[in-house]
Amino acid sequence: MTGTLLFQSLVLGVLLGGLYALLAAGLTLYFGVMRVVMIAHSAFLILAAYLAWFFHQQTGMDPMLSLVITVPLFFAVGVGMQRLLITRLRPATITMMSVLLTFAVALFIEGMIGFVWGGTQRRIQLPYSGDSVSFFGAQIAVVKLIAFGLAALSLAGLYLLLKHSRFGQALRATIQHREAAQLIGIHTNRVAGFGFGIGLATAAVGGTALSLDATIYPSLHWHWIGPLMAIIVVGGLGSIPGAAIAAMILGIGQSLLQVPLGTTWAQTIFYVALFATLMLRPQGFFGGRLAQRF
C-alpha cells in the first residue's frame, strides 16, 4: 500500500466516519430517552435519501434543498412515533417490544418505498457529481466533502443544543435519571418526544447527505443498521460522545481495510469490534452506569 493510497483512504474514512457519527448520535438519543433500540433508523435514512432523489427528480433543484422539507417532517414523525407508538408499549417489556415495533416500521418503510418507487437502483446526477478536489495528493469527491460538511454541521449543532440550552439540559437529565428529572419539574414525556424527533431529524440530514453520492435501493437500510448498532454498543449505549468517537474510529478502520480486503470483508470490522467489545468490556468503551444494565 503506497503512502498516497493510505492517506486517501484515511481521508475517505474520516468523511465516512462523520456520517456514521451523526447517525449513531441519533440512534443513541432514542436509546437514551426511551431505552429503545430503533431498528427503523436506517430505514428512515433511506427514506430521506429517496425523498431527496424524488425532490430532485420533480423540481430539478439541488437535493440538499429538500432538507427544508424533510427535517421538520421527520422531526414531527419522530415526535408522533414516540407519542403514538412507543408509549403504548408496556414499560416492563419496552426494550424487547420496541425492537419488534421499530422493526415493523422499518419493514413497512422498505415495502412502501419498493411499492411507490419500484425496486430499481436510483442515483442522483448532479453537475458537480464527478468533480473532485486534490488534497495533499488525495483525490476527494466534492459530494463526499459536502456530505461530511452536512454531517459535521448537524453534529456540532446537536452538541451545542445538548450542552448549552435549557432543553438540552432537560434532555440529558431525562437520559440520566428519568424520575429525578421529573422531580425537578421536567416534563420528561415531552422531552422524550422531542428527543425522538431530533433523532429522526439526524436521519433526514444523513439521508440527504447519502443521496448525493450513493446508489440507493429499498433494502439498502440493512447494510446501515448493522454497523450503526455495532457503533453504539462499542461506544457505550446511551453515550453520544462515545458513539461519535467509535463511529470515527470504525469508519476509518473500514476505509483502511477496504484496500487490502475489499468492500465486503471490510464491513466485518464492525461485527468483530462488536463481539470483541462485549467480551472485553460489555458496557462499551465510553458507556457509563446506564450501559452496564443493558
Partner: peptide
C-alpha cells in the same frame, strides 16, 4: 457474548 449484558445488547448481537 450476547448475554454479557441484558436486553438491548442481546437484540443487537442477534441481528449483527
Amino acid at each position: 457474548a450476547a448475554l454479557r449484558v441484558r436486553g438491548a445488547s442481546f437484540v443487537i448481537v442477534s441481528i449483527a
